[in-house]
Amino acid sequence: MSERNLKPTRKRRLLEVRKAVSRRQVILSALAIWGLFFGAWIISSAAGLVNDLLVPAPQQVFSALYELIAERGFIGDIGISIVRVLVAFIMAAVVAVPLGVLMGTFPAIEAFFAPFVSAWRYLPAPSFIPILLMWFGTGEAPKLALLFIGVIFFLITLVMDATKNVRRELIETALTLGANRSITVFNVVLPAVLPDIMVAMRQMLAMTWTYLVIAEIVASTTGIGAMMMRARRFLSTDEILAGILVIGALGLLFDILFAALHRWMFPYLREKR
């Protein structure tokens, strides 16, 4: 192998089918695409190619963000948004994870709940906003309810499917070692599916952010989305873009935290052959 590396017989082309690229190339490519994006933005703003009322320059967006945080209590809005996402997400997970595991383990439980759950999955959560407002008024309840409805049915389905993917041999091994039902579920099925549950939760947390923005734009006076809708009234496009930036950064941050949690919880997956 190493001998062949010394004498490359064929020139490496830029595009190779399914051939891994070096770490250096990965980092450079990531920087390049963002550099291109911001570069094009800065240049077109500076050259007057775009209406700067509608598309403010990046530096304007960042200074708007600074002003929002330093003078207008934007941290409070960010905090409220984070709390909403976390509270609604935890409520959904507390119901969805046990139910999904049970449905994936016991076909009788799946037969009962699955027709209900899969029907709800096809109802777009935002279609409930008018009725949620009538039921819960204008406090926190309708927002949390929207996020809860938007996430829970997908999470149940993902957890159920992951549980069904636990290999039958693992369960049968437990049974022939003398495990009863509860030991099989709690000591074998659950730990076997836990890494996949964490992956499903990570995906659904991203979706919770989507519904949060919808909830705050449609019916809220607080939170990141509400700030953006207020900014629209004053034609403050820089503040709207600052809001988008913060939402993106928060989503990324939560994703990284979840990935780190995954690595910390399942050290044995790191050395997979």
């Binding site: 693992l170 049968e172 091994t173 022939t176 070692l177 730990p191 044995y268």
Partner: peptide, 19 residues
């Protein structure tokens, strides 16, 4: 009558509990 610890089974597929 059903599986039990008196008849332990080893399968072709890997069944180690990875955790």
């Amino acid at each position: 009558d059903g599986p039990g610890r008196d008849r332990g089974m080893v399968f072709q597929a890997y069944t180690s509990f990875d955790w």
